[in-house]
Design a protein around this nucleic acid. Structure first.
Ligand SMILES: [Mn+2]
Ligand SMILES: [Mn+2]
Ligand SMILES: [Zn+2]
Ligand SMILES: [Zn+2]
Lengths: 141, 141
DNA sequence: TCAATTTTGCAAATCATTTGCAAAATACTG
DNA sequence: CAGTATTTTGCAAATGATTTGCAAAATTGA
């Protein structure tokens, strides 16, 4: 494990919630974007991190990385403040495994996440279909 | 509803399984890529189609479009032949709604799909972690 | 210590998707 | 219907995330 890869892994593990490559790069000093992406590929292939692709109006289509391993989790993405909220350990794995087996499929992976408004943003009076004038107050990088 | 938009909608509805913008464009004669994308945005905003973003090694990160409306479904993507297989009507909507409510979240949408090997590709002796020399026999566009 | 292998930084390339802009199509109005 | 306002489209150029070629730097191993 090289220093760059270790650093990327530590950033992902310490954050706890999903991070984009751009966000990871911003948290690392002195490493090129290509190195970050190559480290992410390496770590995912080793099973040390997981990823999923999410599209939101503000950030477009980006891949997000989380800690990997046996106990994988799923997330909620607030379309207003763009924070991720932990939905807990996977509760759909067994379900999809069973459905797949009924159809003769060998399920090796799945992607699951929800979107909407977090509690804070609801309290702030934001509506799901918000105006473009609304700002992104919490997530700037 | 303009002709271009109607054509795009018909292509999506007639296909039944998810299609990428590229595939949709290939099924339509005489319409620019930009027009296809703009039609897709329009149709999705009107709730006539749904979409999700999926990443696979062969096709990279692409957005896939399906028929929209009340009864939405989820899909399995074969990483070998790249066909989509219908997993039936959504069975996670209520579940995630409940989990969200417990955490004070206003869930407005979710993405859920599985990946692996379809029955045909398993029978053909393909393994989930396949070699780059394996070819994409069924999906060419 | 020296050659072989792997990793990195930098710049350029990819590729899906978006956007500016003027022409074409459509909707409206008198 | 004619004339004008609004919307949509085609084309080309721009975007932005991600990938890749290549030579230098770092690491490995004998
Ligand atoms: Mn976001
Ligand atoms: Mn595919
Ligand atoms: Zn929020
Ligand atoms: Zn298959």
């Amino acid at each position: 494990m090289t220093k760059a890869r270790k650093t990327v892994l530590e950033v992902v593990e310490q954050e706890g919630s999903p991070l984009s490559a751009r966000q990871i790069g911003a948290r690392i000093a002195g490493h090129d974007t290509a190195t970050v992406y190559r480290a992410l590929h390496y770590l995912e292939e080793k099973g040390l991190i997981d990823s999923f692709v999410l599209h939101c109006d503000r950030h477009g289509t980006e891949r997000y990385y989380t800690t990997g391993g046996a106990c994988h989790r799923h997330w909620f993405h607030c379309v207003e403040c763009h924070r991720f909220i932990d939905l807990g350990e996977c509760v759909v794995g067994d379900m999809i495994e069973k459905i797949g087996r009924q159809k003769g499929l060998a399920v090796t992976g799945h992607t699951f996440f929800a979107t909407g408004l977090c509690a804070d943003c609801q309290a702030a009076g934001k509506m799901p279909g918000r105006l473009p004038s609304d700002t992104c107050s919490t997530q700037t990088d």
